[in-house]
């Protein structure tokens, strides 16, 4: 029995088994960033650290780009990516602004405007 593909949700990746398999190495690296020593090792030699976790070329490029949508396309899950973002000094408003192509101020204003909805 085959399952029909569910209707896509605009602007949203549902992190399912396919994504979890695709993103495993990237997410595993990001999970390691719970440890301060690992965060420091990444900062010292990013490429070597990515090697250690066996990132795919697409995942390595996404890490180098600092582009969140690209990281998600490479199988990254936002909960683990948040730990990478922490190293880069980005908070969730910065991430939201980058993904929506807005300035951080405009993104915050958009959040605020939801209160009127």
């Amino acid at each position: 029995m085959t399952r029909s593909a569910p209707a896509p949700i605009p602007g949203t990746t549902v992190f399912d088994g396919a994504e979890a398999q695709k993103g495993y190495a990237l997410n595993r690296m990001c999970f390691s960033f719970n440890d301060a020593a690992n965060r420091a090792a990444f900062v010292v030699d990013e490429a070597a650290y990515c090697d250690r976790y066996g990132l795919t070329p697409e995942q390595r490029a996404a890490v180098a780009s600092r582009n969140v949508l690209q990281l998600i396309a490479a199988g990254g899950n936002i909960y683990y990516l948040a730990k990478l973002a922490g190293i880069l000094g980005l908070n969730v408003q910065d991430l939201g602004a980058q993904q929506t192509g807005m300035s951080v101020e405009a993104f915050k204003a958009k959040l605020q405007a939801s209160a009127q909805g």
Binding site: I9, Q99, K110
Partner: peptide
Amino acid sequence: QLDGERAG
């Protein structure tokens, strides 16, 4: 929603 083009 934190992730994707629909973030925010």
